[in-house]
Amino acid sequence: MNNHNKINYIELPAQDLAATKAFFHTVFQWQFSDFGNEYSAFSGAGLAGGFYLSKFCSNSQQGACLVVIYSHDLAQTQAQIEQAGGRISQPIFDFPGGQRFHFIEPSGNELAVWSDQDLDNP
C-alpha cells in the first residue's frame, strides 16, 4: 500500500548484484525481481527497495543514510552475516533502547542490525 507522505522505497548501490542478492536472500530471506542486468528490486524486507549496479557503495561515515534491520537475536544474525560473507564493521554495542552492530555486505554497503532484546537475559 502506498501511503501519502510516507517513506515507500529505498535504493542502494551494488558493485556486485549477484553477490548482494545472494547475501540478503541467505541471511534475511529477501526476495528479488530483476529488471535488466543493472537493477534488482527486493521485497520481504519490511520496506520495498532495490539495488542498482554502481561502482559506489553506501557508508554512513561518508554521509550516507544508514539502513537498520531489526532482529530478535543479534548474535544469531551476526553469525549468519559472517557465514554468508559479510564483515562486521562495528561490534555489538549498547545504545538507548537496545543494542546493535554494523556490517558490510559483499558490495561494500554498510548496514546495521538492532534489537531491543537483552543479550544477557533473552
Rank of each mutant, 00 (worst) to 15 (best):
N37Q: 15
L12M: 13
F32R: 09
Q29T: 15
Y39K: 12
F35V: 15
Q80F: 02
D120A: 12
S115W: 08
D120L: 07
Y39N: 06
P106I: 01
H72A: 08
N2G: 14
V67N: 00
I81S: 03
S115C: 04
Q62Y: 06
V68S: 04
Y9E: 13
F56N: 08
G49K: 10
N37R: 15
F56A: 02
A14E: 10
F28L: 05
R100M: 08
M1K: 06
N37F: 11
V68E: 09
G49T: 14
I88M: 05
Q29V: 10
H102V: 04
S54L: 01
W114N: 09
T26F: 01
R87T: 15
N109T: 13
W114R: 09
E82W: 02
N8G: 12
L74P: 14
P122L: 01
G98C: 02
L53S: 09
K6N: 10
N3I: 05
F23S: 05
A45P: 14
G49L: 10
N5Y: 02
Q29M: 09
A48Q: 12
F42A: 00
F95E: 15
L66M: 07
H25W: 01
T26M: 00
C57E: 12
I69L: 13
L17I: 06
Q76S: 15
A64E: 15
F32V: 15
F101P: 14
F101Q: 13
F32S: 06
Q29A: 08
H4V: 14
F28Y: 06
E110I: 02
L111W: 11
N59Y: 00
F101Y: 11
K55A: 05
H72S: 07
V27L: 09
A84Q: 12
F51C: 00
N8L: 02
F35Q: 10
S54E: 08
L66V: 10
P13T: 13
N3W: 01
D73Y: 03
Q78Y: 06
G36K: 14
V67F: 03
D94H: 12
Q31F: 00
H25Q: 10
E11G: 04
D34P: 09
N59Q: 08
Q76T: 13
Q83W: 02
S71N: 11
R100E: 07
E11K: 00
N121F: 02
G86A: 07
C57M: 05
K6Y: 07
F51R: 04
F95A: 13
Y70G: 10
A18D: 13
V113A: 04
A75E: 15
F95M: 14
Q15A: 04
I69D: 01
